[in-house]
Amino acid sequence: MKDENTKLSRADEVRAFIARTPLAQEMGLRCEVMGDEMTMVMPYQDKLIGNFMIKAIHGGAIGAFLELTSQAQVFLVTEHLARPPRPINLTIDYLRQGHAKDLYARAEITKMGRRMCSVRAEAWQDEREKPVTTLMAHFMVAGD
């Protein structure tokens, strides 16, 4: 791992955030940080099911997954924040059924302001081009 020290420490803080957040642990989340980019993984687990008959992952679990992904991504690129940012609002689009498989997600900052930040995130399974669920959110990024 040869990264500049500051980046590395922030990446570690993001990993620590996932590791010490009970909900993220409950959902079994893993994050892979590469510089200022990050991919979050939610490995398939039976407890994530929302509908037995069609073996679909619960929409609320996918929403929470995308919210945590966005929160972690904003935290990754806001060195001045001591703690992960708080969401103001979010909109979730459910595009496809989440099958009984691992889910991946990435978030992208659309606009970083001084107080607020706008984020888009996508979750997918087999094909990145066929997102299962997308999210748009705003977070508070004013320093504490």
Binding site: R20, T21, P22, L23, Q25, E26, H58, G59, G60, A61, G63, A64, F65, E67, L68, R83, P84, P87, L90, I92
Partner: peptide, 22 residues
């Protein structure tokens, strides 16, 4: 406890509310 989103404050994560309201 397992639904907490901020271990420092013990507040439940917003994602739980999303699933609840959904």
């Amino acid at each position: 406890e397992r639904l907490v989103g901020d271990p420092d404050t013990g507040v439940i994560h917003g994602g739980v509310l999303t699933a609840f309201l959904d």
